[in-house]
Nucleic acid binder design. Structure first.
Lengths: 154, 154
DNA sequence: GTACAAGTTGAAGTTAACTTCAAGTCAATG
DNA sequence: CATTGACTTGAAGTTAACTTCAACTTGTAC
C-alpha cells in the first residue's frame, strides 16, 4: 500500500508540513517519489516515522535523529553504533524521568502547602510551620527549597 | 543577607543574563534595588527562584509562571487560585512521566532489538522474528510500532 | 580619587522546529 | 479535457527563551 503525504499525515495525526520539513531535513531518505515528483510512503515507513517520534519524545534533536536514520540506511555494519545511540538515549530518558519525579515531589509539597493555607485562609501558619508539624514526606523537598542542608543518608 | 545579580546567579548556577531576563519579563517583582539601581536579592528570594525553576521544569511557560508570581504577590485572596494552578500542573507532570515511561519502553525494545541484531551480525532475523520468540514485555511496544492491533485488556 | 570589575539598559541576534505563503504542478473525476 | 483538490518547491515568518552587544553607571579596593 502506498500513501501520499496527506494520507500519511492523517495516519500519524500530524501536519503535512511537518512531514515535508522532516523530508527536507533529510530524516526521511526512505520515501520514494512518483513519476510526477510526489512523495510515496510505504507501510513500513510508518514504523520509521514512529521511531523518529519516539526519539524526538526522548529529547533528541532532529540532526541527531537524522544521523541515526542514516546509520540505519547504511545497513548492518552500523548495528553496534545504533545500539550505542539507543542505549545512551535510554539512559537519558531514565534520567529525565528521575528529574521529573523530583519536580513532581516539589509540586506535591506545594499542593499540600496551598491546601493547608486554604484551610487557614492564610499562608502565615504553613509558611512558618516547624518540621514536626509537616508530613515527613515533604521534609526533604522543603529543605531543598529553603536551601537548608538536610541529613544525608550515609 | 543581600546579593547582587552575579552572586545570586552563582548561588543558583545560572547565567546573570537569565536572571535579568526574568526580571525584565516581570517574574521577579520581589527583587529590590539599591540606591544606584542595582538589583538586591534577599535570601528568601532564592525560594521564589527555585519555585520558578520547578514550574519551568514542569513545562510551564514564563507568562504563566509570571501570573502565578503575581498571584502570590497579591496575597492571601489568591490562595485558592494558586492551589488550582499547582494541582493542575502536578497532574500535567504525572501525565508527562507516563508518556516518558512509554517512550522508555520503546527505547528498551529497540535496545533489545539491536542487541539481538548485533549478536546475529544482521537485523534480518530479529526484524522478521515471530512474537513467540520475542520477550513478552516487548509484545505491546512492537505491535504499536508496527501499527498492528493488539489484544486490548477488557 | 582613580581604577576597574561588575552592574545597568535597550536593542539586536540566536536557535530549533516548525508553519505559512506564493506560485506553480499533478492526478482523479465527470 | 477541464476542473479541482492535493501535491510540489523555496523563501520567509513565527515562537519561546534566552544571549550578546554597546554604551554607560555603580561600588569597592587601594
Amino acid at each position: 500500500m502506498l500513501y501520499t503525504v496527506g494520507e500519511m499525515a492523517k495516519k500519524l495525526d500530524m501536519p503535512t508540513s511537518t512531514l515535508r520539513y522532516y523530508d527536507k531535513e533529510g530524516l526521511l531518505p526512505f520515501v520514494e517519489r512518483s513519476g510526477g515528483g510526489m512523495r510515496m510512503f510505504r507501510d513500513e515507513d510508518i514504523e520509521w516515522l514512529k521511531v523518529i517520534g519516539c526519539l524526538k519524545k526522548a529529547g533528541m534533536k532532529l540532526t541527531d535523529i537524522k544521523r541515526f536514520i542514516e546509520m540505519a540506511m547504511a545497513g548492518d555494519e552500523t548495528i553496534s553504533q545504533r545500539l550505542d545511540l539507543i542505549a545512551a538515549q535510554r539512559k537519558e530518558v531514565e534520567a529525565q524521568i528521575q528529574a521529573m519525579n523530583q519536580t513532581l515531589a516539589t509540586l506535591k509539597f506545594k499542593e499540600w502547602y496551598y491546601t493547608t493555607a486554604k484551610q487557614d485562609g492564610s499562608t502565615d501558619r504553613v509558611r512558618n510551620m516547624p518540621s514536626e508539624q509537616i508530613p515527613p514526606e515533604f521534609w526533604q523537598v522543603r529543605a531543598e527549597l529553603k536551601g537548608d542542608t538536610v541529613n544525608q543518608s550515609k
